[in-house]
């Protein structure tokens, strides 16, 4: 799922709408401040204290705006499979080689580890300095299902540049599905406050070509000149 594209689309549209509303409200406000100063007026611009027809019309308009925004919200949430991996079930009908790859991510105070079902390869680190950040390796071009849990308190798995986030709870597994169309490396962070060194819980996610990923699963490390 392309969280980033959906985010950019929805947030971008909302930003335009919000900007428009702000300009209209601020404009009316400024107009009133300039033209309605007591010094400039000796009587009220209008005396009426309510106008039911306008009020009801405005309420209907607001209802319409709300309906549109609800539609925007829900339809995009469905595009993201409710932010969940309901789609994993549908994707399991895919041919071998296209099916999602699962990566088990575990948060703990204060770092991350990852395990790969069917392989002895694991990733971990201490997060104490930037050099000790774990690098979670994933294949490029194939859906990846992150199965996220925690060993202790609540944390959250966040890759800001990819707009991907899901909380990590003990005694519970959350899943998110994400395809990495390109190779590359992204910074991840913990975004749910988890105690003293919450600030240090950074990690990397690195997408590599499928062959390198296979090598990684077998040997536990990437070839020396792996694509970054």
């Amino acid at each position: 799922m392309d969280y980033r594209r959906v985010f950019d689309h929805v947030f971008g549209l909302q930003l335009w709408i919000a900007g428009g509303v702000f300009v209209v409200v601020a404009g009316l406000l400024l107009g009133a401040l300039v033209f309605n100063r007591a010094r400039r007026r000796d009587k009220l611009p209008f005396a009426a204290a309510e106008h039911n027809a306008i009020e009801i019309a405005f309420a209907v308009f607001l209802g319409g705006a709300a309906a549109f925004l609800v539609w925007l919200s829900l339809s995009n949430n469905h595009r993201l499979d409710y932010g969940d991996t309901l789609a994993v079930a549908q994707q399991s009908g895919l041919p071998a080689g296209q099916q999602p790859v699962r990566v088990d991510v575990t948060a703990f105070q204060w770092c991350w580890s990852a395990a790969y079902p069917g392989s002895t390869t694991t990733v971990s680190g201490s997060c104490a300095t930037p050099a000790d950040r774990p690098v979670i390796v994933v294949p490029q071009g194939r859906p990846v299902e992150f199965a996220i849990t925690s060993r202790d308190v609540a944390h959250a798995f966040w890759i800001p540049d990819l707009a991907l986030k899901r909380d990590a709870y003990p005694d519970h597994v959350n899943t998110v599905l994400m395809t990495f169309p390109e190779t590359g490396q992204w910074l991840g962070r913990c975004s749910e406050y988890c105690g003293t060194y919450h600030k240090d819980m950074d990690f990397f996610v690195r997408a590599v070509p499928p062959e390198q990923y296979q090598a990684f699963l077998q040997t536990g490390s990437l070839p020396a000149r792996a694509a970054a």
């Binding site: 985010f7 929805v10 919000a18 509303v21």
Partner: peptide
């Protein structure tokens, strides 16, 4: 206008597709 900024951003984060990214930030 200031409360309005709070309200408008409130609608954004009432939208899960946006909130997934900005929550806890």
């Amino acid at each position: 206008p200031q409360f309005l900024i709070g309200g408008l951003t409130g609608i954004m984060i009432a939208t899960p597709a946006v909130d997934y990214q900005v929550t806890d930030s």
